[in-house]
Simulated assay, not measured.
Amino acid sequence: MNLLRRTAAALASVVALSACAGNSTLADEEARMERSRQVWNAQGIDDYRMIVSVSAGMIAGSATIEVRDGVPVSVQRTEGGPQTLPLSAFARYDTVEELFAVLEQAFENGSDEIEALYDSTLGVPLSVAIDPMKNAIDEEHGFLVNGFTKL
């Protein structure tokens, strides 16, 4: 299964799992995000590596990102799968703080649906699906974080 299909399947799973819960509101999601951000901040992790897969409409890509002292120092394409996103697109996703910023912007913009899963120990957003307008086509986007490693 190629990267685009894996990313789409994972994002669909997040949406499906959340839909099954049925009781999750945007306020609940935003509160979960804030709690996870507090957990992340409490860790004090400044050096890490993560693989970030991004999907937006019909484009997708995956990059291995290394962060030192809280600053991205390396963004490299991950092997395998389609790479329709330019590496410059990962500037929005190149630190855990930026991942939280993507979520925060979705809440501020009044997105219709926001579904996220977080690492319970580190607070890192692991899987995020955002649907800005529920009845529009191809504006959904999200990301997955794999292989998060403290350095």
Rank of each mutant, 00 (worst) to 15 (best):
N23I: 09
T64R: 06
D94N: 15
R92E: 12
A21D: 10
V54R: 05
S111Y: 02
G110T: 07
V102H: 04
S111F: 05
D46I: 09
Q105K: 15
T64N: 04
E98N: 12
L87S: 04
G70Y: 00
M33T: 15
G80Y: 12
A101D: 05
G81L: 07
A21W: 02
S36K: 04
C20R: 13
G22R: 12
N23V: 12
E113W: 00
F100L: 04
V96H: 05
P86H: 05
G57W: 06
Q76K: 15
E98C: 11
W40L: 15
S24C: 12
S127I: 00
L103G: 11
T95A: 10
V54Y: 00
S120H: 07
D47T: 14
V96D: 06
G70T: 12
C20H: 10
I65Y: 05
L26D: 10
Q83Y: 02
L117P: 00
A56W: 01
S24Q: 11
T64M: 09
Q38P: 00
Y118P: 02
A101Y: 01
F90Y: 09
E104T: 06
L85E: 03
P82N: 10
N41K: 15
D69V: 15
V39Y: 01
A56D: 02
W40N: 15
Q38G: 11
M50N: 03
G80A: 15
E98I: 01
S120D: 09
L122E: 10
C20N: 10
N41V: 13
L99M: 08
P86L: 03
Q83S: 10
G57M: 07
R68H: 14
R68K: 15
T121V: 09
E104Y: 02
V102D: 08
E97I: 13
M33Y: 03
G110A: 01
V71H: 10
S127R: 14
T95S: 13
A19L: 14
V128T: 08
A89G: 02
A60R: 03
D119S: 07
E108M: 08
P72I: 11
V128N: 14
I59H: 07
G44I: 13
L103N: 07
L99C: 08
R77T: 11
Y118C: 01
E34W: 00
I114S: 06
S18G: 13
A89E: 04
Q43K: 15
E79L: 15
S55Y: 00
T84K: 11
A91C: 04
N41M: 15
E108Y: 05
E113G: 02
Q43P: 00
C20L: 13
S120R: 08
L85K: 03
A56M: 05
L26N: 15
V54I: 06
S111D: 08
